Computed example of a mutant assay.
Amino acid sequence: MRATRDWFGDALAAVGTSHDKVVVVNCDLASATKTSVFKERFPDRFLEVGIAEANGIGVAAGLAQEGFRPFVASFGHFLTGKFLEIFQSVGLNDAGVVLVGTHAGLAIGKDGPTQMGLRDLALMRTLPNLEILQPADGVETRQMLAYLVGHDRPSYLRLCRQPQREVHDEHYRFRFGQPDVVRDGADVVVFTMGGMVAVVLDAAEALAGRGVRATVVNASSLPLDTAAAGDLVARHEHVFVVEDHFVKGGLIDEVGRIVLHRGRPVRFGSWGVGDYGQAGSPADLYRRYDLDAEGVASRIAAFLHLSTPDTVKGSQP
Rank of each mutant, 00 (worst) to 15 (best):
A219L: 03
L260Q: 14
H19Y: 08
R264L: 10
G194W: 10
L285H: 11
P70C: 01
A283V: 11
Y289T: 05
L63G: 04
P70W: 03
Q134V: 07
K39W: 02
V72R: 12
V59Q: 14
S298I: 02
E140I: 02
F191R: 00
Q143F: 07
V23Q: 12
F246K: 10
A146S: 14
S221C: 07
P309F: 07
L130T: 06
D94M: 06
E237Q: 15
L84D: 12
F303M: 06
R235F: 02
L123I: 15
V199H: 01
F83C: 11
N218I: 08
T80N: 07
L133R: 03
I57G: 04
T215I: 02
A73G: 14
D152R: 13
G263C: 09
P163N: 05
V216D: 01
S18A: 11
E254Q: 15
S155D: 11
D169Y: 10
F176L: 10
V259S: 03
S36V: 14
L29K: 06
A198K: 09
K21Y: 09
G211F: 10
V181Q: 00
G194D: 01
T308R: 15
L133C: 09
A302R: 15
F176G: 02
G195A: 15
V22C: 08
Y276N: 07
C27G: 13
G195T: 00
G58Q: 08
A14W: 01
R288L: 12
L306M: 09
L285Y: 02
G263F: 01
N93I: 03
Q134I: 04
A60N: 08
G274H: 14
P135I: 00
D180L: 09
L106H: 08
R287H: 15
T226F: 07
L63E: 03
N129R: 11
A61C: 12
D292C: 08
H19G: 01
M193R: 02
D225T: 08
G117M: 00
D225V: 04
A122Q: 06
Y289M: 10
S270Y: 07
C160W: 01
R2G: 02
F246E: 03
R262L: 07
G16N: 13
Y289I: 05
A234G: 13
E166C: 12
A283W: 01
E66V: 07
N129F: 13
D275G: 13
V200K: 07
Q178P: 09
A186V: 00
D292W: 10
V139K: 15
H19T: 06
G295F: 11
V100P: 13
F8I: 02
A32V: 05
R175S: 14
K39A: 09
E85Y: 05
A203D: 08
L291E: 05
V25G: 01
R142Q: 13
T192I: 00
F176D: 00
D253N: 15
G274E: 12
T226I: 09
L145Y: 13
D94Q: 13
T35C: 08
A302V: 09
Q65W: 01
I132C: 04
H236P: 10
G177W: 02
A11R: 15
P113R: 00
D180C: 15
A104N: 02
S298H: 12
L222S: 07
T226V: 09
T308H: 13
R257H: 06
G314K: 07
V59P: 14
P128C: 03
